[in-house]
Write a protein that binds this DNA or RNA. Structure first.
Length: 585
RNA sequence: GUCUACGUAGCUCAGCCGGAUAGAGCGUUCGCCUCCUAAGCGAAAGGCCGGCGGUUCGAAUCCGCCCGUGGACGCCA
């Protein structure tokens, strides 16, 4: 929270504790009340600027009616040298506190002073966090889940950065293993079909059937002709993969860049295979006796390791038994390591790089993987608790109130590329962050392209553009912005003005809360609320008014709003428009 | 079947580490531009917070059970 808000709340806490101390000294309280109490901003502003439940929280151990306790406290509380000027008893025993008139003026000065940095804090204390998101398979086009994951991961990373963490964005490229073999096989068959006809060879059920495979095979055939047709199968597939895989990875990089996501690291799974880290991780498990061979495969004792972890977390034997934990294969009968084995090595690698925490954004369909991954990290000498997984529910696209599954153009499932072609990036990034990750959200395609107040992203951008416009207009009249004194800023007494300042003052705290909950949606909603309050203010209070000091005070408030909206939009890599006509072309 | 997420206005969703009269947007109805962008604002209507129990001075919020929806239970990733 803003330093001032933090200070005000600390003052209040002290004043309450001191008052309780005096009550004990006066013999009103039999003992020091120990149970914790909260200080909060009441939902209803008629209940003061801040409120505490101390009297109710203490009722039990003081054996006294809450209302009575409140009276004892209120009579002994000292608000001298604080930001508060009075305190009232209300309801069942709430103590409501009211800020001095000058507080809002101080907030405005504070926001203006901090400028671009307003909202930043050292909450995270520079802890290093690796956040991995999207990590789509390079064997085909990216889908809607990747679209949501991208917006979520990237914006969460920014929020964490604002909250004082050291952030590194990462994309894990599955460029090795089973899927790549399947990719090679699929390409191979499509390639052969070009020369031998579609009926000559059939594509197995569990391989990649997408058009994109055909296209890559055709490109390969265009370059190489039929010279690989009679080559050994292995060579042919290698050549096809060597051609198609880099193309696909490059396409993913292009798409992410277009989506305004800049990764610090593109981590190739193949490096784990090539430099021995995968073998190393498996060997650690072997040495600890956590593996065994069966049916020609190497297994990991998940049941034992995860069971122990769950027991530490307080689960009973019966509860664990009911989970029917299963062991996991690390190396298949055919000698290929599993995705799970590679993932263990990968996460071990992340922590070896010095990250205090790793955050993974996964689709909800991976939820079964979370617990065993944490367990496996314990087993290879890391701490599974340092891995946080955000499980994201899938997205339903709707248009005209109906669920849309297929792209009109291709008739296939809508890909990330389709989405980015049809919907402004600003809207996609914003709207995907309107809902918590865990919600099964709906994405309204019609709303996303709409340029009106119905569309939350335009609504916020408009508030910013409107402020720019006010400033421009005033400058045309020769009126320029100047610094205001505290008494001048205290002219802002309209309810719309006070509400705005109050909301502005909560920004830093909002970021911290959003970071703590891994929920950037809090910030988009905060931005919408801020825009709402601004538009209300705009309609109620004319900035360009007769009184010069009041005009300047209102301008100062506008600039605060402008700063905060700009900070949020920049944080989320969304366009910050000076005028709205620049958005529609 | 077991696990997991979720269930709040007609629709999409906030609120959920217990607090005062449960909020917003859309949709519906009715208003507001001689004045800084009406890409905006105001007003009205709309609720058994899925159901039943429990804990508590107090439950949409915490616990248990049921009902309903999505997802997971592979030598897939």
């Amino acid at each position: 929270m803003s330093l001032l808000v933090k200070q005000a709340m600390a003052e209040l806490r002290n004043a309450i504790i001191e008052a309780a101390g005096r009550a004990v000294a006066d013999g009103e309280f039999p003992e020091e009340p120990l149970s914790d109490f909260i200080i909060e901003v009441p939902a209803n502003k008629e209940n003061g600027d801040y409120s505490t439940n101390a009297a109710m929280a203490w009722a039990r151990n003081l054996h006294c009616a809450p209302r009575k306790i409140a009276e004892i406290l209120a009579g002994r509380i000292s608000l001298e040298d604080t930001f508060f000027d009075r305190c009232e008893i209300a309801g069942p025993g709430f103590l409501n506190f009211y800020l001095r008139e000058s507080f809002n003026a101080c907030i405005i000065q504070d926001i203006l002073e901090k400028g671009d940095n307003y909202g930043r804090s050292d909450f995270g204390k520079g802890q290093k966090i690796n956040i991995e998101f999207v990590s789509a398979n390079p064997t085909g086009p990216m889908h809607m889940g990747n679209a949501r994951g991208g917006a979520l991961g990237d914006c969460l990373a920014s929020v964490l950065d604002y909250a004082g963490y050291g952030i590194s964005r990462e994309f894990y490229v599955n460029d090795a293993g089973n899927q790549i073999e399947k990719f090679g096989l699929s390409l191979d068959i499509r390639y052969q079909q070009i020369f031998k006809g579609e009926d000559a060879i059939e594509l197995p059920e569990d391989s990649y059937h997408g058009e994109d495979i055909k296209i890559r095979a055709a490109e390969f055939a265009e370059i190489n002709g039929d010279k690989y047709i009679d080559a050994p199968e292995e060579d042919r597939r290698k050549a096809l993969i060597a051609y198609a895989l880099p193309k696909n990875i490059a396409a993913m990089k292009d798409n992410m860049e277009k989506y305004r996501i800049n990764y610090d690291t593109w981590f190739l799974e193949s490096t784990l295979h090539n430099d021995g880290e995968l073998t190393e991780a498996i060997n650690i498990l072997k040495e600890k006796g956590l593996t065994y061979e069966q049916d020609g495969a190497l297994w990991y004792k998940n049941k034992e390791v995860l069971g122990a972890r769950l027991k530490r977390e307080g689960k009973t034997d019966e509860e664990i038994e009911r989970l029917e934990l299963k062991d996991e294969v690390l190396v298949r009968k055919n000698g290929n390591p599993t995705y799970f084995a590679a993932d263990i090595a990968y996460h071990r690698n992340k922590f070896a790089r010095g990250f205090n925490k790793a955050i993974d954004v996964w689709g909800a369909d991976h939820h079964g993987h979370v617990a065993r991954m944490k367990g496996a990290l314990d087993a290879v000498g890391c701490n599974g608790d340092d891995l946080d997984v955000i499980l994201m529910q899938l997205v339903r696209l709707t248009s005209n109130g109906e669920v849309v599954r297929m792209s009109k153009r291709s008739g296939k499932a809508i890909t990330l590329v389709d989405l980015l072609d049809d919907i402004p990036i600003d809207a996609v990034r914003f709207l995907f962050n309107m809902r918590e990750p865990g919600s099964q959200m709906e994405f309204d395609l019609d709303l996303a392209v709409e340029q009106s107040s119905k569309n939350p992203v335009y609504y916020c951008q408009y508030a910013h553009a409107r402020i720019c416009s006010i400033i421009r207009k005033l400058e045309e009249e020769g009126k320029t912005v100047r610094e205001c004194t505290i008494p001048e800023l205290m002219l802002l007494t309209a309810p719309e003005e006070k509400d705005l300042v109050k909301h502005l003052s909560a920004f830093t705290d909002e970021i911290i809360s959003s970071a703590r909950n891994y929920d950037p949606a809090k910030i988009t909603r905060y931005a919408v609320d801020l825009a709402t309050l601004f538009h209300k203010f705009y309609n109620a209070c004319r900035v360009n008014c007769d009184s010069e000091p009041l005009m300047q005070a209102r301008l100062a408030l506008c600039i605060c709003v402008k700063n905060v909206i700009a900070n949020i939009l920049k944080m989320f890599s969304i366009t910050v428009p000076e005028r709205m006509d620049s958005l529609s072309e």
